[in-house]
């Protein structure tokens, strides 16, 4: 399978959130700071890749009738591993994401990829699918975090970037981020649930606009090419 094609599908043309429109609960809930967004995105990426590999490796053994139950057990196992690792090594992230880390179990992206992709494809393809789909998810989270944080409180990279004593990245969630304009001028409503719904709505709307536009352009280009070919034939 073509890796470039897979990469493009995961990030743009078959993006889990913007095009498949699944896994939206966590997307809207945790995108308040860049720290949360990157942490959640990478956690999902790791879990998705592991689950994809296991499901693809077992795809010939799993009986069809109880496949969903088996997928759920596999996913729950990896989610528990990641949850415990985060609690041990990055407790600030675990505290910030709270119940949304264990809730990755019911995130439709993972079970959706297991059902739609890994059942029919080899381990290697499924591994790359996990990475690219996870990257697509992370990108959406990062875009939403950056937008909501900037508009909501005038900051960039809250929790992740610390500029108090020189520029550095922190993993304990204490970084204040880069203040771009004073937070009093921000629309603090963007940090509340309202902002989550609105930002995701606008983002999916934008994506649909872009996809329609490129589809139209492609059709026009095809038509122009066909016309040119027809003209050439007439000339000949």
């Amino acid at each position: 399978m073509n890796r470039k094609q897979q990469f493009k599908e995961g990030l743009i043309t078959n993006n889990p959130v913007l095009v498949q429109q699944i896994g939206m609960c966590a997307t809207m809930a945790i995108t308040t700071t860049l720290f949360n967004g990157v942490g959640m995105g990478l956690s999902v990426l790791i879990i998705l890749t592991c689950c994809n590999v296991v499901v693809a490796a077992l795809r010939k053994i799993i009986p069809d009738e109880i496949r969903l139950a088996i997928f759920v057990v596999v996913i729950a196992g990896f989610v528990t591993i990641v949850d415990l690792l985060l609690q041990a090594f990055i407790p600030a992230l675990s505290a910030a994401l709270g119940v949304f880390i264990p809730l990755i179990v019911v995130n439709c992206i993972i079970i959706g990829r297991a059902e739609a992709f890994c059942q029919k494809n080899s381990v290697k393809d499924s591994f790359f699918d996990g990475i690219f789909q996870g990257l697509g998810y992370t990108c959406v989270l990062v875009i939403m975090c950056v937008f909501r944080e900037l508009v909501g409180s005038g900051r960039f990279g809250g929790g992740l970037i610390d500029i108090a004593n020189g520029f550095r990245f922190t993993l304990d969630g204490t970084g204040g981020g880069i203040q771009i304009f004073p937070s009093e001028y921000g629309m603090s409503i963007m940090n509340l649930p309202f902002g989550g719904f609105l930002t995701l709505g606008l983002l999916i709307g934008l994506m649909q606009y872009a996809l329609k536009r490129s589809e139209k352009n492609r059709k026009e280009a095809e038509r122009a090419a066909a016309e040119a070919a027809a003209l050439k034939e007439v000339d000949d």
Binding site: P193, F194, F197, L200, G201, L202, G205, Y209
Partner: peptide
Amino acid sequence: PECFEGFPICLVSAALVAMAFM
């Protein structure tokens, strides 16, 4: 707008309902 067909318009209206719940 046409590009808001489907989910996006739902999300934007949900945002307004969420504002009421605030």
